[in-house]
Design a protein around this nucleic acid. Sequence first.
RNA 1: GCCACCAUAGUUCAAUGGUAGAACGAUGGUAUCGUAAACCGUAAAUAUUGGUUCAAAUCCAAUUGGUGGCUCCA
Length: 579
Amino acid sequence: MKNMEHIRHSLAHLLGASILELYPGSKITLGPAIDNGFYYDVDVNGKITDADLQKIETKMHELIKTWSTFEKKVLSKEEALEFFKDNIYKEELINAIVNKNEDITVYTSGNFSDLCRGGHIENMADIKGNSWKLDRVAGAYWRGDEKNKMLTRVYGLAFETKEELEAYIHQQEEAKKRDHREIGKKLELFTFDEEIGKGLTIWLPKGNIIKEELENWAKETEKIWGYQRVTTPIITKESLFYTSGHLPLYKESMYAPIRIEEENYYIKPMNCPFHHKVFSALPKSYKDLPLRLAEYGWCHRYEDSGSLFGLMRVRGMQMNDAHIYTTHEQAMQEFIDVIKLHEYYYKVLGIEKYEMELALRDPKKIDKYHGEEADWELAEKMTTEAMKASGVPFKIANEGAAFYGPKMDFQIYSSIGRSFTASTNQLDLYMGKRFGLEYTDKDGSKKTPYIIHRAPLGTHERFIGFLIEHFAGAFPVWLSPVQVTILPISEHQKEYAESIYKTLKENNIRVELDDSNESLGKRIRNAKMNKVPYMIVIGDKEKESNVITVETRTDKLEGITKESFLEKIQKEIKERTLN
RNA sequence: GCCACCAUAGUUCAAUGGUAGAACGAUGGUAUCGUAAACCGUAAAUAUUGGUUCAAAUCCAAUUGGUGGCUCCA
């Protein structure tokens, strides 16, 4: 794919050149190749909107005819600064190159020269005219820093052939059909309301079934895995968040305080400090550890309005949260157990291919992290070893650690390709000290527990958003809002249909009897569009033979009795079988 | 939050600055039907506020909400 990268990079040059011609006085900055094409970030003299893309594309087609190869030239710092004298961005880049003691190279094709490390196609004529197109306009901060000026980024798609480009575009369109926002609307799972507020989910009855099923599963599982449930308030006096250290760091993403009786109360953005208070409520012995405290805590975060995204990024969220307080000796095993718990959950949900990311400290933001160096080193060592011991595939990221400790994240990608953290498992050697938590060890000495923060099912908002896309709305039986639809062909079979409905209903199956005034074909269509896993059509044949025909999403089970169907579906629900 | 764009029945879409329409859905009725849309009728909308104009869904501004990115993040 080296060649593809060269093509994309060359096209970025062409894009930069075209923008300069159409918008004289603009300052071009950086234009790399990316996974599906290329972009160029420009400080535009004027304004580029989506409607202008065609114009730029036309210019590119015009210019490419005058380009052939890229000529390389090495410049001295002075020459380079002179060459790019009106461009402060290039000036910054040149100084950075000089600081790294690298050559300053400029590549020229046609009458366009750009500061560039190299990596171009040999001959521009080899790029097929219909294998690329401009895609969209976006904003991007210079050097990715929000304190800097926002530049205009023009994205382009580029592939080796026209067919590949079309296939990519087609695939993107298909992916959009899985978008949880679309499916959520069609299947009536959730909604938002302007008057209630941005990012505050309204779970409709059908979506709420999924949420509750997931919750029940987690409660059942955590009980088996030795967790105890607690309930803590959603608001607290501000001092709690000073104790935790969250307030100075996260104030911006917390809802403003409620002032009452001359005190400030905050709505909690996370549950941790509350669980620490549960720990310290009663004296603890090493015999009490590991102590696993779980809660479906209601958290609210005032996220930037621009970053909200369907269910994947919301302002109000219910987290599958728990904190595990351990002795120093137990911490590693507990961390591994949480990884195993993740594996169990993913297996049941049919999530087979995944890679965990172990987020360590970012050396560039070392000030962000609290606590002692020795604890950090230990925590990073322990988590790395635990990951290895677990056998779960993972990669290390030297960024993204929480301010109190390293974390293992499960990254998911939305149907349109955005990435999110779905689950998390964090080792914290710091907060225990901060909250003055202690337990009495065997020898009578007081020790600070280590804390594991974990949410294998993340927030249910995001996790269900992910599951909607994962299953494309066709949930396994146990999660399906409607599990069975019964369709009597005509009024003549209504009574028999009702008896089957009653049997299933009495056995806690989410069954619907659709005897509405519509044609059978229409009612079947409705059931299929609603992704109902089982459909039972009742006609005279069934009524007389006292058996039923059950259709799954893919199969047809003929002539089974309602008793054996009930047994089958109950088993599938109990075992949370995928289908 | 920042850059760009978008906003018409519940939904998906129409409508040169000059009478807001359709389909599905909802609802009332007719047909009682064997595997992905039966037929007839009814109700229902220009996000909000202000401005330009003889006249605004259409032009302008602000607000609200959404979309694609950037930054941030479960």
